[in-house]
């Protein structure tokens, strides 16, 4: 009973006392916003880069843009996301107000995600049967119409699981946002910790992440099952 008593007291002090749950709520809000924002930015950027590289591969045009994309992906993949975040917040957006920090973080994570997602999307585009492009072109559709209406929709369906995975990874990656004082789930735990001087708030943070990841993973599995079923029927 002593153990349960301790546990409940700690839980109370961590979450309920002095409305500390408000920090966690703010943290969840910011983390989710950054995750979704970064995912979307990453996918848009990834599609752009993938298209440029595919086009260059096929036709040899867009040499400069292709080179630019390569430099970009090399730099992003070669540096830690935290360093990128700090550079973007302190050097590029140095005059932005501190309340914009969560959005700047979402942008930074999105720029990072795009470099990785572009490879996934490129693979997805590659995996669409060539005959689809041939059929589209034979009907008289041009390169961009064929890509937009025929290839990309099929590519996205192929890589949906991978994109979901990326979003789950982003959810955890955003935990460094505290370095620019964004109150995300991790930092919320930090702040409560600084008022409580024990480490149990970190456990609460961990549990929140766990719950979110498990929830997202089960959504992903449901989508995968639906897609597989519709393919089979």
């Amino acid at each position: 009973m002593q153990f349960v008593d301790n546990f409940l007291t700690t839980l109370y002090k961590t979450v309920l006392a002095e409305n500390r749950w408000r920090f966690y709520l703010e943290g969840i809000g910011n983390t989710l916003m950054m995750t979704v924002g970064a995912s979307l930015i990453g996918i848009v950027l990834g599609i752009l880069i993938a298209m440029i590289k595919t086009h260059h591969n096929n036709s040899g045009k867009m040499r400069f843009l292709n080179w630019l994309c390569n430099v970009y992906t090399t730099v992003i993949r070669g540096t830690p996301v935290l360093v990128q975040l700090l550079i973007i917040y302190y050097m590029i957006f140095s005059s932005a107000s501190s309340s914009a920090a969560p959005y700047i973080a979402a942008l930074a994570f999105g720029l990072n995600s795009g470099a990785y997602v572009s490879e996934t999307i490129r693979g997805g585009i590659q995996s669409v049967d060539k005959g689809q492009t041939e059929a589209g072109r034979s009907l008289g559709l041009n390169q961009s119409q064929t890509m937009r209406l025929i290839v990309l929709p099929q590519a996205v369906k192929n890589i949906l699981p991978a994109l979901f995975n990326e979003m789950i990874m982003l959810l955890k990656e955003t935990s460094v946002a505290g370095w620019i004082q964004v109150v995300d789930i991790t930092r919320a735990g930090d702040i409560v910790r600084s008022r409580m001087w024990s480490f149990s708030p970190l456990l609460v943070s961990a549990v929140i992440y766990l719950v979110l990841v498990v929830a997202l993973t089960s959504v992903q599995r449901m989508i995968e099952r639906r897609l597989a079923a519709s393919d089979r029927s």
Binding site: S94, S95, A96, S98, Q181
Partner: peptide, 20 residues
């Protein structure tokens, strides 16, 4: 509106740049 920093020099940077 409170901004919580780990290090004072971060706070000073933001003070100088006008963020806080």
């Amino acid at each position: 509106k409170l901004e919580l920093y780990n290090k004072y020099f971060e706070a000073v940077n933001d003070l100088l740049s006008g963020r806080i």
